[in-house]
């Protein structure tokens, strides 16, 4: 049952990453991978809010599985992030590669923490 919820979330999450990435790229022409950055930051914020809501008792366990390991897990990605960082470095954009790592990690970790703290108080 939980496995079906994970699949249902992933079936939406993975295409949503692809479509969001395209939509973000259509709005700029830089080589910096803003699309993946936006997707990872967004998934981290949603997962943080979800975790905070669950801790406050406002999200049932099936919603947590559907949206956590399902939607957010498939929406966010480490493989795309690491490969594009490698490509930036290989193409001579070392600064952009370093900026991608620093920004993705700081914003991602911050978004989860912030989302969960705010949701915990909102839903308490």
């Amino acid at each position: 049952m939980n496995w079906l919820l994970v699949v249902a979330g992933a079936v939406v999450g993975a295409p949503l990453r692809y479509l969001t990435d395209r939509a973000v790229q259509q709005r700029h022409d830089s080589v910096f991978p803003w699309g993946t950055f936006v997707v990872n930051a967004g998934a981290c914020l949603v997962l943080g809010v979800l975790t905070g809501a669950a801790l406050a008792g406002a999200a049932s366990s099936w919603v947590v599985v559907l949206l956590g390991p399902g939607l957010c897990g498939a929406l966010s990605t480490y493989s795309t992030f690491s490969y594009e960082t490698l490509r930036l470095a290989e193409r001579g954009w070392g600064f952009l590669a370093a900026a991608n790592v620093a920004m993705s990690v700081l914003v991602g970790l911050g978004a989860v923490h912030l989302g969960s703290q705010v949701a915990r108080q909102l839903f308490a």
Partner: peptide
């Protein structure tokens, strides 16, 4: 394989939640 399987397998959000 790339966008779907590996993108769905790896996760940035769980990484961030583990940290939190």
């Amino acid at each position: 394989a790339g966008v779907g399987v590996l993108g769905g397998f790896t996760t940035f959000s769980t990484y961030a939640l583990d940290f939190s």
